[in-house]
Write a protein that binds this DNA or RNA. Structure first.
Lengths: 233, 233
DNA sequence: AAAATAATCGAGCGCTCGTTCGATTTTTGG
DNA sequence: CCAAAAATCGAACGAGCGCTCGATTATTTT
């Protein structure tokens, strides 16, 4: 419900819904922004909860109406079809992750090793702050219309490209010892995703987010850093 | 449709369905084995295809009847509910992966490093031979009744435990330099799963299974082997 | 405070879903 | 080759689906 403190404190459902409203102003029939954002937040909050439990497909609009407190009729003032609701959430996840990863702080951008560690840390912490959103995008995207599917695939490819670019730079600067940056980037991705895809498992084991980030960073760094670099660490 | 050559040649739909029949003899009302296995194969083949495209939930029994060539009424001679069909496939995947991973060849079992590489190689090749089955289990298990869900979680935990055991042995024999074998095992798992979960991506990029196995093995080995061991490679 | 506009509501529409069942066809065995 | 047994079939059922729409309530404007 409420986000964590720190740099990801602003990723509340309501903040994200304000952005959804902007992007879908033409299809959302409710005119007053403050009304629309508040109700959208109720709807999105409920649909994320229900979908994470039983899947979006299995979540009926009657379930959603009851869980959100918004009537069936009113729901259709906020989207014109169930698929549009899906696309709203998918797009928000995609835009947010693109935006966050594209803006590293200066000290991270200056050095490939620091940049890579920053990407890993930031990606995992972002998915933690928006956990239900990412689980939704990951689990649902595969089964839906071509449009939504392509969207998810493109978004994932974009994230991977960010990692591949840093890896390439690290190779050029002779810091990383890898032969195929694209394949390495592809293998880093599931390590980041496992934190939210199998969140229940890690919660049960008591693995903290810090421990998880450290483990992934360590695994990746140890595997790809040139030996001379590793001695420094 | 047909399996690959080599040690995984026998994982055909029909062979697996013969095992399903054994396990579900009491609920399958068709009496002659040769009839039951043949029809079961048609049904399972169709349900795997349809589910991988659109999801099990979105696959109706009318779709399934048409795609398999078995009528709606006859389907219910092979399972007593749609959920039982789900469980049949889930259980078969779980049993098979448990069985295969528990029986390493002698030369692999003797050495932790070889054993780990064998596990990685075998797991990826098994999921390749039974790709649709694993995609089905991975994508569908989350959304279904407690029983099915627990089954999938337990199966995943069992696989991870196999890896953790080998890692612990490697640490004891001072071959691996890791501090938390359970967490390392947890991180290896998504690397193995990515091959079938995002198979389309790797196919599009032209990544071969050999290249993928080599990349994962290399990543894991480089990250966890003691430095003295790495020089040998 | 009345009129105009905005937002909400839920019963009802056509349709598809999982499941059942009695009739029909196919296979088996003497 | 025919009766008994096994297997197959698809129409029919009630429930629940996404979605619509005219009536109602809440808010804004004058």
């Amino acid at each position: 419900m409420t986000g964590p403190a720190g740099p990801f404190a602003d990723f509340t459902t309501e903040t994200l819904c304000a952005r959804i409203l902007e992007r879908h102003r033409s299809t959302i029939r409710v005119q007053k922004d403050h009304v629309a954002v508040k109700k959208l937040a109720l709807i999105v909050d409920a649909v994320l909860d229900l979908s994470n439990k039983q899947g979006f497909h299995a979540t009926s609009l009657r379930d959603l109406a009851q869980a959100s407190g918004v009537s069936m009729g009113s729901l259709y003032s906020y989207f014109d079809s169930k698929n549009t609701l899906l696309m709203m959430i998918l797009a928000e996840v995609s835009f947010t992750v693109g935006e966050v990863l594209a803006n590293p702080p200066a000290e991270a951008a200056a050095d490939p090793v620091k940049h890579l560690d920053w990407l890993i840390d930031t990606h995992i912490r972002l998915t933690e702050a928006m956990q239900r959103w990412f689980v939704f995008a990951f689990m649902e995207a595969k089964f839906f219309p071509v449009q939504a599917r392509r969207f998810a695939v493109d978004s994932e490819a974009a994230t991977e490209a960010v990692f591949a670019t840093v890896l390439r730079r690290g190779v050029a600067e002779k810091r990383f010892a890898i032969t195929d940056p694209d394949l390495t980037a592809a293998l880093i991705k599931p390590l980041l995703q496992d934190w939210y895809v199998k969140r229940g498992k890690y919660r049960k084991r008591g693995t903290t987010i810090e421990a998880y980030i450290a483990a992934v960073s360590n695994l990746v760094d140890t595997a790809i850093l040139k030996r001379s670099d590793q001695a420094i660490e």
